[in-house]
Write a protein that binds this DNA or RNA. Structure first.
Lengths: 129, 129
DNA sequence: TCTTGACCTTCCAACAGTTGGAAGGTTTAC
DNA sequence: GTAAACCTTCCAACTGTTGGAAGGTCAAGA
């Protein structure tokens, strides 16, 4: 199938498929006589894998590694599990940072009357610390 | 003071200060005869403001607006409060997305024995859905 | 056969925010 | 006079995705 069909079947944009190929996330597609990329069901499967890994927030670097592990039938599950748990840790750090921001902003907003008056604890907090 | 001193005093990298100036976040600094940027305490104050707003996760676009509001003494506090609450909402959405990722990964990792055996529910989940 | 439209190709640029380097001028101190 | 620590501008990299431009290919209908 052509790239458009592979895009539809995998849910990955055609532009993005080319990009993934260019940075080595997915193997180089074979070509037709006229130079069109040709994809198999297995290729679509890889693309879906990549899309789902992205959905879990893995970086492209991590995904490249995950695809390698996935295609290597003799890999140890411990390696994958370690990556997953490391990523969970990264997510948890990010979450707590965002929580902290939201908490601070909620507190500041609660103390801001939010009317036509100019005095505003939010700006004051940003300015004087 | 020169840019290096302003960087130290505000906690904002000199490179970043130039960048902020170039994209209009902060006003253009005046120059010495030899072309060096000159900063006042007030300028450092703005830089600290920007740094703190970044720390709360505001985008540069939002910060540009916040700096404008801060420097306009007659603005209504309602406008600032609305921005803060809109940003809290954005943060909350981001947080729940990350929570969802972490939850899924924790579940998958829990079911992966993580030893030398190759079978791995994490990769299987990414592959077959 | 010719044309139209939908597909495909590559290359180049933009987004946000920051950091790095290169190549060169200025100031300060010894 | 020279060395180092500063400053200048410009250009590029990072991450991941999207957009456009300019051009080739394929299938269907007139």
């Amino acid at each position: 199938m052509n790239i458009g069909q592979a895009a539809k079947n995998s849910g990955v944009n055609a532009k993005l498929i080319r990009h993934y190929e260019s940075i080595g996330i997915i193997p180089k597609a074979s070509r037709s006589d006229s130079g069109y990329r040709i994809y198999s069901e297995a290729d679509v499967h890889i693309l879906s894998f990549v899309k789902r890994a992205r959905g879990l927030g893995f970086s492209m670097k991590e995904i490249k590694k995950l695809v390698g592990l996935w295609r290597n039938r003799s890999r140890a599950s411990s390696e994958v599990k370690a990556m997953a748990l490391a990523h969970v840790h990264t997510l948890e750090i990010k979450i707590s940072e965002l929580e902290e921001m939201a908490k601070t902003l909620r507190y500041l907003a609660r103390n801001c009357h939010g009317d036509t008056r100019p005095d505003c604890p939010i700006l004051e907090n940003l300015a004087d610390q």
